[in-house]
């Protein structure tokens, strides 16, 4: 969290790890580096989640563009769990 007035940053969570991170927006082809959360009306609390993606497999995106397509290997943490994933 960054205080927009002072620029001071505060670490809110400490046990997030790769594929088990907080507020992650990385499950599927729609993904971003912004956290998914909802502030309480008094701005004292945040509702969010820690997403467990361990046990999911890799997925790939192929671009549609003029010329040769680009193959983007999505990290496991960026793919959507499919039937059979734990």
């Amino acid at each position: 969290m960054r205080d927009t007035a002072t620029g001071k940053e505060t670490q809110l969570t400490r046990d997030g790890v790769k594929e088990f991170g907080y507020a992650t927006d990385n499950a599927g082809w729609i993904h971003s580096d912004s956290p998914i959360l909802l502030w309480s009306p008094d701005s004292k609390k945040i509702a969010t989640f820690q997403m467990d993606e361990r046990g999911t497999g890799d997925m790939y995106l192929v671009s549609t563009n003029v010329g040769h397509p680009r193959l983007e290997a999505l990290e496991a943490s960026r793919c959507r769990a499919i039937p059979g994933s734990s």
């Binding site: 505060t10 004292k44 509702a47």
Partner: peptide, 11 residues
């Protein structure tokens, strides 16, 4: 997902 609530003042 494991749902959490974070108290931001107390982290």
């Amino acid at each position: 997902i494991e749902r959490v609530v974070i108290d931001v003042d107390r982290a």
